[in-house]
């Protein structure tokens, strides 16, 4: 962003990408959606000590209002279908964060007959947070990494910001900002 003095004040010149990404980055609204144990740590991150609100992360109860789907917990085969449905109900651009070993790869239930071994088998994932459960600090770090990733999004790659509706933001590559 460049600020140039002109007679009577200043004018700010910026690229459209930059200003869109900046606003997107600081209003990441996740869906309040807890699956298992990790959801408790997610709730802690919203509470006083860790205070997610500082990052513009404010929970929304409806997928229609959410940008970020936090998969906090074990994805079972029975739950897989509702999760895909919720994902499709979210407006674009949408981001998915897999929180905890269960959502990453099955975790302690790697050999269970009822568990999907990683949520990335059913929906594209942007950020993986390891841990069982990850600490709230790790979750905050993950949000900061996602914000960096959002800053690399460019309009020219597709209309809107996400590459393709079905791919989600998985193809989000490019030079660091």
């Amino acid at each position: 962003m460049v600020a140039k003095p002109v007679p009577g004040g200043q004018v700010v010149l910026t690229s459209t990408d930059y200003i869109i990404d900046l606003s997107r980055k600081y209003s990441l609204w996740p869906l309040t959606f807890g699956l298992a144990c990790c959801a408790i740590e997610m709730m802690v991150a919203y509470a006083g000590r860790f205070d997610f609100d500082r990052f513009g992360v404010i929970p929304r109860p409806s997928p229609r209002q959410a940008d970020l789907l936090l998969i906090a917990g074990t994805v079972t085969k029975k739950m897989a279908e509702p999760i895909v449905q919720i994902y499709h109900q979210m407006p674009e651009p949408r981001f998915v964060m897999a929180m905890g070993s269960c959502a990453n790869c099955g975790g302690p239930y790697y050999d269970s007959y009822a568990v999907v071994k990683g949520v990335d088998r059913i929906i594209p994932v942007d950020i993986y947070v390891p841990g069982c459960p990850p600490r709230p600090e790790a979750l905050i770090y993950a949000v900061m990494e996602l914000q960096k990733k959002i800053m690399r999004m460019k309009l020219e790659r597709t209309y809107g910001a996400t590459v393709q509706a079905e791919k989600g933001s998985r193809d989000l590559t490019g030079e660091p900002a």
């Binding site: 298992a36 079972t76 029975k78 239930y109 269970s112 007959y113 009822a114 568990v115």
Partner: peptide
């Protein structure tokens, strides 16, 4: 119910 069935009882047998 059953949306969080992780099969723990069965897993414990191994």
């Amino acid at each position: 119910i059953g949306y969080l069935h992780r099969g723990t009882e069965k897993l414990m047998e191994t």
